[in-house]
Simulated assay, not measured.
Amino acid sequence: MALSALEKRSALITGITGQDGFYLAELLLSKGYRVFGLLRGQNNPKAAALARDLPELQLVSGDLLDASSMIRAMTIAEPDEVYNLGAVSFVPHSFTNPRLVADVNGGGVLNTLEAIRFYQDLSGRQVRFYQASTSEMFGKVQDSIQSEKTLLWPRSPYGVAKAYGHHLTINYRESYGLHASSGILFNHESPRRGLEFVTRKVAHGVARISLGLQDTIALGNLDTQRDWGFAGDYVEAMYLMLQQDQGDDFVIATGETHSIAELLDAAFSVIGVSDWSPLVGLDPRYARPAEVDVLIGDASKANSVLGWKPKVSFLELVEMMVKYDIERQRSAA
């Protein structure tokens, strides 16, 4: 339900140009929030698309690596809620750029938390904080199904940096009484996912193959298994976390795991292809130095405390993505 003018709350979202930022901004705007998106750089190429697709969104300049700019963003947005979705999110990139990933995904959390503390002291307002943690923190999994109690054993610089940000969030909650929550989100996808991610790469490739624009798709390990859900469902869980009386940590997942081979089965079935083996090639360039073989989440706490459950199934998600890319390629032709 939309808020009245007197009740209107304000939210600041970092990572506004990513799929989660877009879906979350849509959700909060539909609920009557004033929504501010943190945008890095004066000439960001995605600013025009945001202005077109989310005209009610207000953009504010800032950089997770610059603590002073984060404080400035707080004073402009005057947020009741801050959602830190900003990150270098492509895991393989973290092996070649570990310092940047550590600074953004770890140090950026610290800068945001400190900016919130400063703003609270300055304004006397209480701010609720959401940190986008990740299932990649589990890495070399210590439990067959991962929950909030599973030991973290990250297998990439990305996972290590996210684990730092995750523990910082807990520390600020315990040390300063900050209403701070971490969403340990398992893989969540959508048509808005970047082309570098395997789900979108497959959907995009299948769409182009169906239209005769591409011959094959090159991938890495087809046996890797992930718990894949729909990003639009997952941002609802983020919102619900900040509506609780106290901050906490929640695994957000479907509880199902599928291999990349199963992803290919589902994607090619949308265009009526049952044997995709001649259309998919293996390329060692896409293998990680340390692989995370299987991830599957236990979201029972989110279900019982938040009342959250995923709505879109794996097959519905894949079909949505393939059909989106088919229409997109047709319209571009």
Rank of each mutant, 00 (worst) to 15 (best):
residue 82 V to E: 12
residue 24 L to S: 12
residue 162 K to I: 14
residue 70 M to E: 05
residue 4 S to V: 02
residue 90 F to T: 06
residue 43 N to I: 00
residue 22 F to P: 10
residue 180 A to W: 00
residue 268 F to K: 02
residue 203 A to Y: 08
residue 132 A to R: 02
residue 216 T to I: 11
residue 164 Y to S: 03
residue 256 E to C: 12
residue 149 K to F: 04
residue 247 G to P: 02
residue 273 V to N: 09
residue 127 V to K: 06
residue 240 L to I: 02
residue 16 I to A: 12
residue 196 E to S: 06
residue 147 S to R: 09
residue 77 A to F: 04
residue 71 I to T: 10
residue 48 A to C: 07
residue 79 P to A: 01
residue 321 M to A: 07
residue 324 Y to A: 14
residue 291 E to N: 07
residue 94 S to H: 10
residue 245 D to K: 08
residue 124 G to V: 14
residue 277 S to I: 01
residue 287 A to M: 13
residue 99 R to L: 14
residue 229 G to C: 03
residue 239 Y to G: 11
residue 137 M to G: 00
residue 107 G to R: 10
residue 35 V to Y: 15
residue 103 D to T: 12
residue 2 A to C: 04
residue 2 A to F: 03
residue 148 E to R: 10
residue 123 S to I: 11
residue 100 L to K: 15
residue 13 I to A: 07
residue 220 G to Y: 14
residue 49 A to C: 01
residue 172 Y to T: 07
residue 124 G to A: 15
residue 61 S to E: 13
residue 309 K to S: 14
residue 191 P to K: 08
residue 100 L to G: 01
residue 269 S to L: 14
residue 203 A to H: 08
residue 190 S to W: 00
residue 215 D to T: 06
residue 18 G to E: 01
residue 257 T to Q: 09
residue 296 I to R: 13
residue 106 G to R: 11
residue 161 A to H: 07
residue 160 V to N: 01
residue 71 I to P: 00
residue 89 S to C: 06
residue 99 R to H: 04
residue 330 R to T: 09
residue 325 D to G: 03
residue 23 Y to N: 12
residue 333 A to P: 00
residue 310 P to T: 10
residue 185 L to I: 13
residue 200 R to G: 01
residue 226 R to M: 10
residue 62 G to I: 08
residue 212 G to W: 00
residue 154 P to S: 10
residue 279 L to F: 14
residue 50 L to I: 13
residue 165 G to S: 05
residue 310 P to V: 03
residue 144 S to E: 15
residue 101 V to P: 06
